[in-house]
Design a protein around this nucleic acid. Structure first.
Length: 497
RNA sequence: GGCCCCAUCGUCUAGUCAGGCCUAGGACACCAGGUUUUCAUCCUGGCGACAGGGGUUCAAAUCCCCUUGGGGUCACCA
């Protein structure tokens, strides 16, 4: 068996918006496929829609791909043997192909007005026929058409769909067949002379030697048009593979309506990039059916488009959050602290300078919450209690209720505070205090919650949180004593009714 | 509506192509216990699915057909 040479695949986003999370998965799978087989992954910008294409979107898309850690061998920024990699810059090639197709009769000029087409569609839908161009201009003799073109009569170039049926073997879906009667004589070149997507995508995939077109299922119905065009061009079509769609909680194509759809939303919400990558892998693909947590190395070593599932997948944010937390727990403290830093700065709790100068304190604070946060953005809210005024902490209602219940007449807590104060005043040694406190409680046969609930409320105002002696260490002697003094007094004040 | 695609726990999925090893496995979520100074983590257990109906076969989640359901697409957008 002759194995085909190394594959050449591409990711071809349209710079008309931010990078969609589904697009990110498409890019990831293409990239993994290329890397697995020692092939080439290239990036091409589909900017044939001049109205909606924006340079800033292109920048954002590239930035998103870089954030994911995907690298491309050819592309608009790195160049390559098939440059340029922006379709708008390849107009000459497209026009040459259009002329060739027109000359050989695979395409024809159409002079139908927008009004006529609209009328046609209305009539068709009125009698429940399939909407589509009726081929009226197909019968115009070439020389007549040319004269009308020369006379500057507005026109488009349409592809002349032949009779018959079009089949292709989809890597994911298997044998797919369309009757050509279902395929419109679609527009290749617009009135303004601009080529359309279905036309340029084939021109460029051919020119760039693309061997596998792996893309979302929304393109499945474009495929017969493209296959027909490859044939007209005298080219063998590449292999196609259509990934199932990523769906929102409403079961429809993921859209703004049901949650964040842009990759950068998840980056900004503090999801670890490794978790994003891992979770994207799980949308339509599985490593072995058992292993959920794995990295791109495993993806590259095992990815096979033929094993991608055919059914769409609903984007489960709960599982995504779980996975994000999983990666934070596995990671080193240093890196988690570093990646949380921008969020802490944005919250106003610390400046970047303060994080730097108080790094060991900052890291200790992160350490206390590392197993509790699921995203980097959750850190500020979790450590907010550290930044509140020591004499005016806001008590969570549940925390306060529990604390009051455990406090009783306060005798135990006050006895403990008498024991604790001089030690804390001398400096907070968390481990020593922890051991000492447990021994102190054991001597008196007291229950832990009777002491710790009131302390926790006085110290943090929260019902849950890190070990209290770690909290004392973060607060330091003075602030610990202040909070204890004010807090316990407040818990003994009768509740106003 | 036409065409195309799809169909396993609430969700992501393994198993389907090469029918028996499946009284259908894993994960998230949920519930219950355990560990713990609380919360979280961690550990243990539980709940929970082959859409329905016909075939083919000794045997079907797996193959075929129909029905139902869902999605995509029907542009001078990509």
């Amino acid at each position: 068996m002759n194995e085909p040479s190394a594959p050449r695949v591409r990711f071809a986003p349209s710079p008309t918006g931010r990078l969609h999370i589904g697009g990110a998965r498409t890019a990831l799978f293409n990239w993994a496929f290329a890397r697995r087989h020692g092939g080439v992954f290239l990036l091409r910008i589909e900017d044939t829609d001049h109205e909606r294409s924006k340079p800033e979107y292109e920048r954002a898309i590239l930035e998103g791909l870089r954030w994911l850690g995907l690298d491309w061998d050819e592309g608009p920024d790195v160049g390559g043997p098939h440059a340029p990699y922006r379709q708008a810059e390849r107009l000459d090639l497209h026009m040459a192909a259009a002329a060739r197709l027109a000359a050989q009769g695979s395409a024809y000029r159409c002079f139908c007005s927008a009004e006529r087409l609209e009328q046609l569609r209305e009539q068709q839908s009125a009698r429940k026929a399939k909407p589509g161009y009726d081929g009226l201009c197909r019968s115009i003799p070439k020389d007549v058409a040319q004269r009308r073109v020369d006379a500057r009569e507005p026109n488009v170039l349409r592809f002349a769909v032949p009779q018959g049926e079009t089949r292709f073997l989809d890597l994911i879906r298997g044998d797919v067949t369309f009757q050509n009667t279902e395929v419109d004589d679609w527009v290749m070149v617009r009135t303004d002379g601009g080529p359309t997507y279905n036309f340029v995508v084939v021109c460029d995939d051919t020119a760039m030697g693309i061997t596998h077109v792996l893309r979302g299922e929304e393109h499945l119905t474009n495929t017969p048009k493209q296959v027909l065009l490859y044939r007209a061009l005298g080219c063998e079509p590449p292999r196609f593979g259509h990934f199932p769609l990523m769906l929102g909680t409403d079961g429809k194509k993921l859209s703004k309506r049901t949650g964040d759809t842009a990759l950068e939303d998840y980056r900004d919400r503090g999801f670890p990039v490794e978790a994003v990558l891992n979770f994207l892998c799980l949308q339509g693909w599985a490593l072995d059916g058992k292993t959920e947590v794995f990295g791109v190395d495993e993806l590259i070593a095992n990815f096979d488009p033929a094993q991608v599932s055919k059914a769409g997948s609903i984007f489960d944010v709960d599982k995504f959050m779980w996975m994000a937390g999983e990666y934070i727990r596995m990671d080193t403290l240093e890196r988690v602290a570093e990646r949380c830093a921008p969020h802490v700065v944005a919250s106003g709790q610390l400046t970047a300078d303060e994080i730097h100068t108080r790094q060991s304190w900052y890291r200790a604070a992160v350490a206390t919450e590392k197993e509790r946060i699921r995203t980097y953005a959750e850190l500020p809210e979790r450590i907010a209690y550290l930044f509140h005024p020591d004499d005016g902490l806001v008590f969570d209602a549940k925390a306060e209720a529990n604390a009051r219940k455990q406090l009783g007449d306060g005798a135990l807590v006050h006895a403990y505070l008498d024991w604790l104060r001089p030690k804390v005043a001398a400096g907070v040694d968390a481990a020593a205090l922890r051991d000492g406190t447990k021994a102190w409680l054991a001597e008196r046969g007291a229950k832990f919650p009777a002491l710790f609930q009131p302390l926790r409320c006085a110290l943090t105002g929260e019902p849950g949180g890190p070990d209290l002696f770690d909290v004392m260490a973060l607060l330091g002697s003075e602030r610990t004593l202040t909070r204890l003094g004010h807090g316990i007094a407040r818990l003994q004040t009768p509740v106003a009714t």
